[in-house]
Amino acid sequence: MAKTIMIVDDSASIRQVVTIALKGAGYDVIEAVDGKDALSKLTGQKINLIITDVNMPIMDGITFVQEAKKLAAYKFTPMMMLTTESADDKKQAGKAAGAKAWLTKPFQAPTLLDAVSKLVLP
């Protein structure tokens, strides 16, 4: 059974690159454009990893992680933050909210797959 990963990012191009890379590696992918959209797509189905951007309109990544952690079906789901090099405080805030993994932007597909496979192999 393929593992399912959700990618939450307001940038369509990043979503696309991530989705292509993950699908190519054998994961199922659910896309969401911001925290609120993502929450509406968390309907109880099995998700093995959530990757989320930090800065997004409507609902930012840290709030999203906090909200997702409150849902019974996702409270133990590993979360990965996409941060920028300069935003170490965001990384710490993300960790505090419950996203223990992180990936520094910009990244290339192999780096993403490497990081993802430490948490969930396809």
Partner: peptide
């Protein structure tokens, strides 16, 4: 609880 699975 933090989503870390040692097996992974």
């Amino acid at each position: 609880r933090n989503g870390m699975d040692p097996l992974s």
